[in-house]
């Protein structure tokens, strides 16, 4: 891929909270190319979520440069354009779903993009149908299960047709079947993704390249296929079963 395909480029980005001395991000350099699916793994507090928030302009960087879609981004106005093309799935679905009903929450983004209520409603219904959430339109968001909340959160982002998807621990707290649904949805998407997770297994099945974060820095770990040869967790439990890359003895 040539340089024109670079969607996101961070160079020597530093970030620290004003009340803390330690740098959360310490001269981080990171690139994301068009169509690339990248995983980000790291311990708690290593700065993974902060990195995603910086990309969305939710927290200002202390120093360094960022270019998104080839343009330098610094001020709030620059990020208005970024937010139309990049979607962020929050770690906690209750933070993402603030409207009383599913339909309203999914239609919130298109309405902000200037769509008419009818268009926004159609877009929301279409996205929900694509995620097999037809019939959820009038469900009350706080009464959804954890997996349903996560899928609806994903719908609220996908309805805006983002070119890049940032996902912050999308499988945290989900059971195996909800996790499998998320994996199936993500593997169907043909857009660039940055997925933050604690689970190598999950990243191995959804991303191509894996980076790790440690002490406020990113480090390229390699191709996910090479890093991982089989899955650790599976729905078969203790029963004899076949691994995708080999047979269990």
């Amino acid at each position: 891929m040539d340089g024109n395909n670079i969607i996101l480029e961070m160079k020597d980005v530093c970030f620290s909270y004003t009340d803390r001395q330690r740098k959360v991000l310490d001269h981080v350099s990171f690139k994301l190319k068009k169509g690339e699916k990248t995983g980000l793994i790291g311990t708690n507090g290593s700065g993974k979520t902060t990195l995603l928030h910086i990309i969305m302009g939710l927290v200002p960087i202390s120093s360094g440069n960022m270019r998104i879609f080839g343009k330098p981004v610094k001020s709030g106005k620059d990020f208005d354009a970024v937010r139309q093309k990049i979607g962020l799935l929050f770690q906690n679905a209750d933070d993402q779903l603030f409207s009383p009903t599913v339909l309203e929450d999914v239609a919130f983004g298109p309405l902000n993009l200037g769509k008419t209520p009818r268009q926004a409603r159609e877009m929301a219904e279409k996205t929900l149908a694509e995620l097999n959430l037809k019939g959820f339109e009038n469900r009350v968001t706080h009464k959804l299960s954890g997996g349903e909340k996560k899928l609806v959160s994903l719908a609220t982002v996908l309805v805006m047709s983002p070119e890049v998807l940032l996902l912050d621990e999308p499988t945290t707290g989900l059971d195996e079947s909800a996790r499998e649904r998320i994996i199936a949805v993500l593997n169907k998407l043909d857009i660039s993704c940055v997925i933050v997770s604690h689970e190598y297994d999950f990243l191995a099945r959804t991303t191509r390249f894996i980076y790790s974060m440690k002490d406020g820095r990113t480090e390229y770990n390699g191709d996910s296929a090479a890093l991982h040869t089989h899955y650790h967790s599976h729905t078969a439990g203790k029963l004899p079963h076949v691994h995708e890359m080999g047979r269990l003895g």
Binding site: H53, G87, F108, L113, P117
Partner: peptide, 24 residues
């Protein structure tokens, strides 16, 4: 803290201070 996170989530979806209504 949650209010701040919710506000961030709204900003990420293009919120500019105006709410719209779907119902007719």
């Amino acid at each position: 803290a949650r209010a701040e996170r919710v506000h961030h989530a709204m900003l990420c979806r293009g919120f500019k201070g105006k709410f719209y209504c779907l119902s007719e």
